[in-house]
Simulated assay, not measured.
Amino acid sequence: MENEFEKLSENVNDIKSLIKTFNNTLDHIEKRLARLEKVDSIEHRVAVNQIDLSDIKESLERIESKQGSDIHHLNRRLDTHLVKIAKVEEEILMLKSK
């Protein structure tokens, strides 16, 4: 009888251990999902920004055909700065998530 109680006690401890491991796994999964949600948000903003940037770029290209190389130079600089802004935004979001 005493042996059965010991086995039962061991089984209860094993179950507790499994539940604890399961909870840790769930916590890990939740953290990964939260990061994925942030990535989705970043991707959405990038997509929206790309649309906005495309509109701006098309407008500048139309003006450029009329006004020449000064606008072309501004267009290239705008592209460069917008890429830098996007990289900084992404780095800020990554730092906030840490």
Rank of each mutant, 00 (worst) to 15 (best):
N49S: 12
L93H: 05
A86G: 05
I63P: 02
L95G: 01
D55N: 11
Q67W: 11
S65C: 07
S17G: 14
D79N: 09
E6M: 05
L60R: 04
I42R: 02
I19A: 13
I42T: 12
V39Q: 07
V88L: 09
N75T: 15
K87V: 13
I63G: 03
E43Y: 03
L18M: 15
R32C: 12
K38L: 08
N13M: 13
E90R: 04
I85M: 02
V88I: 12
K84W: 04
G68D: 07
V12G: 04
S9V: 10
N49P: 03
S41A: 15
I92F: 05
E90Y: 08
R62D: 14
L8E: 04
V39G: 03
K7W: 12
E37H: 07
I92R: 03
H73W: 10
L36G: 03
H72E: 10
D52H: 04
H28P: 00
D14W: 03
D55P: 00
N75E: 09
E37Q: 13
N3W: 09
L95V: 06
N13W: 09
E43A: 07
H81A: 08
L60K: 04
H73A: 15
A34I: 06
F22S: 15
N24Q: 12
E90N: 08
D55M: 08
N75M: 15
I56G: 00
E4R: 13
F5Y: 07
Q50E: 09
S54F: 03
S59R: 14
L53N: 07
D55W: 02
R35K: 12
D14N: 14
L18V: 13
V48N: 01
V88Y: 04
R45A: 02
L36R: 03
L26K: 10
